[in-house]
Simulated assay, not measured.
Amino acid sequence: MDNTFWALVGLLIFFAVVAYFKVPAMINKALDARSARIRQEIEEARALKDEAKRQLAEYQRRRREAEVEARDIVAGAEREAASLLQEAKLKSEEYVARRTAMAEQKIAQAENDAIAAVRSSAVDIAVAAAAKILGERNAAGANAGLVDQSITEVRKLLN
């Protein structure tokens, strides 16, 4: 009986004790539980990954919609600005046209007033000259009343 024999006996006793307390079953049970827990964590990770993909797709869709909406808003603002610019241009052109027409009317009125004033002055001068000439020719006669009446009628007709 040497040391090898006793080592063999100790090993057999160790295996017997391990078998008696069902250590391999406990190890298998612990490994199975750990395997199940790992499998469950993998499934949860897959579910989280799928959820993350769905959320990413949703956010990308919303981003694209927001970009389209932003482009629409910018295009609408540009159209509105162009419309306001066109309207302002038309209004300013109309304003200038009205002011030009008013200025032309004032100029025409001033011309007419000047022509009327010149005519009136010319008539007054002509009547005065005619009265003077007629007065000198018929200085002391019966025709003086007739001359005054004629001068009055000429003034009325010429003015």
Rank of each mutant, 00 (worst) to 15 (best):
A131C: 11
E78H: 00
A117Y: 01
A75C: 00
R54W: 03
L84E: 14
M1H: 11
G145H: 04
K89I: 15
A110T: 04
A110F: 02
R99A: 12
N112R: 08
A130L: 12
V147H: 11
A33Y: 08
I107C: 02
E67T: 01
R79E: 14
L31F: 02
G76K: 05
R34Q: 08
A30Q: 11
A97D: 13
E69P: 05
A33G: 09
Q109A: 12
S121C: 01
L12W: 06
D2V: 05
Q149R: 12
E69R: 14
Q55M: 13
Q105F: 15
R62H: 03
E44K: 13
A88M: 00
A110S: 07
E67V: 06
I13Q: 03
V127L: 13
R119Q: 13
E87T: 12
I151N: 07
I133C: 08
M1A: 12
A97C: 13
A142T: 12
Y95E: 15
S120G: 10
R155I: 05
I125F: 09
K106V: 05
G145L: 06
R34D: 06
G141M: 02
A77R: 07
N112K: 13
G76A: 05
L85H: 14
A144S: 04
I115S: 01
I115Y: 06
A131R: 14
A45P: 02
A45N: 03
G10L: 11
R119H: 09
I73G: 03
Q60C: 08
G76S: 15
E69I: 04
A88E: 12
M26A: 13
Q60K: 09
L146A: 10
L31V: 08
A47Y: 06
E78A: 11
N28V: 02
P24R: 02
I38P: 06
M1E: 10
E136N: 08
K53E: 11
M26K: 12
D72V: 04
D124G: 11
A129C: 03
E78R: 14
I27P: 00
L157Q: 10
L157H: 06
A131W: 10
S150W: 04
L56Q: 08
V68Q: 01
I151F: 00
A25M: 13
V154P: 04
K53R: 14
R119N: 10
V23N: 00
A75G: 05
E41I: 04
A45E: 14
R34W: 00
N112T: 02
T152A: 14
A16T: 05
S92E: 15
E58C: 02
L56H: 08
A70P: 00
F21M: 10
K132V: 01
E78I: 08
A57H: 06
K22F: 01
A131L: 09
Q109L: 09
Q60M: 05
